[in-house]
Design a protein around this nucleic acid. Structure first.
Lengths: 354, 354
DNA sequence: ATTTAGCACTCAACGGGAAGGAGTGCTAAA
DNA sequence: TTTAGCACTCCTTCCCGTTGAGTGCTAAAT
């Protein structure tokens, strides 16, 4: 028991040392020496001791030295370990949070504006590229739906939400609908479901078809059945490629960014955005913070990091916001900011939808 | 007269020398020596003579040497002079043109797809950032118009074109319209002007109001009058911010791009796109090639070049395509490619609109 | 009046030491 | 288990001489 306690203390110190290395390296971009770490530790500890611990950390793969007789820099798994450490016991300055909140007060009415603003704030605050997913289509409050026939079995659904956002989807159906049928469906939905969410519409239609109220005519049931198909198809095909991003210039402006190779890599990520979107969509169910540092299962993010956080709408996770940048980034600030903005975007979405 | 002729020949030779310097510098990125130029000139000419001419060119501000005892590199005005020279006597390889044309054959149905493809091709072919403006709204063939009230005096116009593109504009009017009025206007337009362009609708409405046919009721005239206001407002507010671009990664991948500062500058341009859009819009009336090299009236493009070329729809200049990159770019290829693509995009737009 | 060969001059680029110094690993003592 | 001391490594910096490409100028050639 006593021995266990000592072990624990040692482990704790090791983490603190790793933390200092990460922290220091993030701000200086130079290998960190044992002396510097020793000075940073509040407990009086000699550099020699730190060196011993560092040797362990190196063996465990959390840090490396670029060459003999140089200080240490964190490896990717070192970063990961660090983020795992700080993820939960994280505090974000009240003052900063207030400032961010103030950015959402003025002149933001549409979802698009919320997204643009958030993306801008991410990049401005973190000097990296910001990414924001559109909210799930199911949660949109419908104001008006227009169905336009494109060709056999394919229609274009244009939906206007109560926040005056316009979203359009191409929808493939399993059978052909005439123009008049489309009109009937859209006016049925518009008449009965203004200010409803898609998930509610779908549910309601399904229920109605299942147990039709007494007086309902067969014709209406027929419309409802087709309408349900269309609505479901719209939700189904919501592989919304509209991920909004901004901040490549901020990414460049960061002081230390004289690394061309790195820049190239980030741009590469941006250019095949489809992969990135897929990655983020897969994480959609998780509400909290998720991160990839230096690598991911598919190798999209080699040498870069992606930190995302879900945001909610009506209590459900509706989308994600995130930041992309080099592995060497200020994770404390990133986590705090992303989490804070996630809360703000959620709140703002509720607000404009009332 | 004879003397004049000799003068002319000298001038011509000077231009050829400038041309070789530009050409060579573009491909090697190193200062060009008199010896290299002398070798490139088909007439047997000594490097000493070239040196003399170079001294003149330097005095005229077309070339500079980075330091004494280095070769010469073109200045911005040197580039401009060069482009001015080659702009008109330009030939583009037939084979290349055919390859580009082939890129437009498959699976391109909507205007959006045309734009995306063009932008992609610009960046792929020229290894620089491609920019494509949306066609003027006046020239769109309307398939369906939907008007949604946002707030007093403000409506959202969602228009679906025959190419199944969806475009939406927020339109401010000088008076408030009720929801029923909006419906009446949109159904009037939809009923009478399917497959018409906006400019035609506007013109037709104007004419009808001016000299109403005998049997027309006052109510219809009233609708027409309001409809005209709406249509004009839609066209008016067509400060279409949707400029499509692509190819930042291509921009990076270019072999010689180890210049971080330059990259930063191009990204900066991209990030305040509004200015760039304004610049391009002002040039809209010009059908042919326009170029800014190294600087422009507003200082948006410092150290970068923008070469644009108008494309047409129904004989009118409808938009512009362009390429952005460092001043040191292969202008021969740029001019040829941009002009070629301008023709192709014009043709494709006609094609998909029939 | 041009053009050209020849020559002296300039200056970036390259490379090889030498000096300096930061940082480590190891060892032996606390 | 921690720490002081020390030898060792090797990156960084600076200096300096060499090299060579390229120029400008001058005088001869066309």
């Amino acid at each position: 028991m006593y021995k266990n306690n000592i072990q624990k203390k040692r482990e704790e110190r090791k983490c603190r040392i790793l933390g200092h290395i990460v922290h220091e390296y993030v701000s200086t971009a130079m290998p960190i020496s044992s002396k510097v770490v020793a000075r940073k530790m509040r407990s009086n500890i000699s550099s020699a001791t730190v060196r011993n611990v560092m040797a362990e950390l190196e063996e465990e793969g959390f840090i490396v030295q670029p060459h003999t007789s140089a200080g240490r820099i964190p490896t990717n798994s070192g970063y990961r370990r660090y983020v795992e450490m700080i993820k939960d016991r994280m505090r974000f300055e009240k003052e900063k949070a207030r400032c961010l909140a103030a950015e959402y007060t003025l002149r933001i009415r549409t979802v698009r504006e919320v997204i643009e603003r958030t993306s801008y704030l991410i990049s401005r605050e973190l000097h990296n590229a910001g990414v924001v997913m559109w909210p799930n289509i199911e949660d949109c409050y419908l104001k008006h739906l227009e169905l336009v026939k494109i060709k056999a079995e394919t229609i274009l659904a244009v939906l206007i939400t109560v926040t005056n956002d316009v979203r359009n989807h191409i929808v493939r159906l399993d059978r052909d609908l005439k123009k008049t049928e489309l009109e009937r469906i859209s006016s049925y939905i518009n008449a009965n479901y203004e200010h409803s969410t898609f998930s509610h519409i779908s549910e309601d239609l399904r229920q109605m078809i299942g147990s039709p109220p007494g007086g309902e005519k067969g014709e209406i049931l027929d419309i409802a059945r087709t309408a349900l198909k269309v609505v479901d198809a719209i939700v189904e095909e919501n592989i919304e490629n509209d991920v909004f991003w901004e901040g490549l210039n901020y990414f460049m402006q960061r002081d230390g960014s004289r690394d061309l190779d790195l820049t190239r890599k980030v741009l590469q990520i941006f250019s095949n955005r489809d992969n990135l979107i897929r990655l983020m969509r897969e994480e959609l169910p998780y509400r909290g913070i998720r991160f990839y540092i230096g690598e991911d299962s598919r190798g999209i993010l080699r040498e870069c990091s992606l930190i995302t956080c879900g945001y909610t709408f009506h209590g459900r996770t509706a989308g994600r916001i995130g930041v992309i940048g080099p592995t060497r980034m200020d994770y404390d600030n990133v986590l705090g900011t992303v989490r804070c903005l996630s809360g703000l975007i959620s709140a703002k979405l509720e607000e404009i939808n009332t």
